[in-house]
């Protein structure tokens, strides 16, 4: 339980990574971030205007949370590589959450562009955390490319549909030599707990908290779910049985 999450050269005591998207105001976001216990939180990179200038980084700095810039919105490897370089320049970090979306409707990762971008970014000295499909083969390929973690989706971004293919997540975990972080699709605390029970090293979620009716309360639920799932994963579950087995003595 107390073993830290180790990604590349960093250690985190929290296994819940959050996003900042979807929050209506920064005061609510700040309370939710505190309740989640997160130490690593994603931000997007966008052209500045009067509305979006600064703000979110000040919140993260005040809370001592590391920013994890993403390449959300990119459709090609070339766009993602440029966005990662801009993020490195703006934030002074070589960590990047690599996202290359195939289309706006599904926001599913484009596996070909993602792998291409991952190779380029690793070569360029980035610590690459790729958002990927729940594809065990692609996960291995991303690890071979030098990614510091792999982040398979549970279901499409923002759907809250949970983990649609738990067996694939288990397959990915069983063969991975880097941390597996369940990314996207979490809707409710039991989804986060399941991810950890399947052996994931961490959970990344945003919408489930930021768009909940009570983000602070849901953030607390997610923190406890991740901890509970982690504990359960290490506790050695009983085998599933077809017939009942009495737990009280017969007489």
């Amino acid at each position: 339980m107390d073993d830290p999450l180790v990604i590349a050269d960093r250690e985190y005591s929290s296994r819940l990574i959050t996003g900042t998207g979807g929050s209506e105001n920064q005061a609510v976001l700040e309370r939710a971030l505190v309740a989640s216990g997160t130490e690593l939180t994603t931000v997007a990179i966008r052209k500045v205007d009067a509305e979006n200038h600064s703000g979110v980084l000040d919140v993260l700095r005040r809370l001592g949370i590391d920013p994890l810039p993403n390449t959300a919105g990119c459709r090609t490897a070339a766009e993602a590589v440029l966005t990662a370089r801009l993020a490195r320049e703006a934030l002074g970090t070589n960590w990047i959450k690599l996202e290359v979306h195939a289309d706006e409707r599904t926001l599913l990762p484009d596996p070909v562009e993602t792998l291409d971008a991952a190779r380029q970014l690793v070569h360029d000295g980035f610590v690459v955390l790729p958002y990927t499909n729940d594809d065990p083969v692609l996960a291995l390929r991303l690890e071979e490319a030098g990614c510091a973690a792999v982040m398979p989706l549970g279901s499409p971004i923002g759907t809250g549909l949970g983990i649609r293919n738990p067996h694939n997540i288990e397959l990915i975990v069983s063969r991975a030599g880097v941390p597996v972080i369940l990314d996207a699709g979490v809707g409710i605390a039991s989804d986060a707990a399941l991810a950890m029970e399947l052996g994931c090293a961490a959970v990344l979620l945003a919408t489930a908290v930021t768009r909940a009716s009570d983000p602070e309360r849901m953030a607390t639920a997610m923190r406890l779910a991740v901890q509970g799932g982690r504990l359960a994963h290490g506790a050695g579950r009983i085998p599933k049985r077809f017939w009942a087995q009495a737990s009280s003595p017969p007489r």
Binding site: A44, R46, V48, S54, P67, N70
Partner: peptide
């Protein structure tokens, strides 16, 4: 010329 910064997202 594009000028970018971190915003809420992800």
């Amino acid at each position: 010329v594009d000028v970018l910064s971190a915003v809420q997202g992800g």
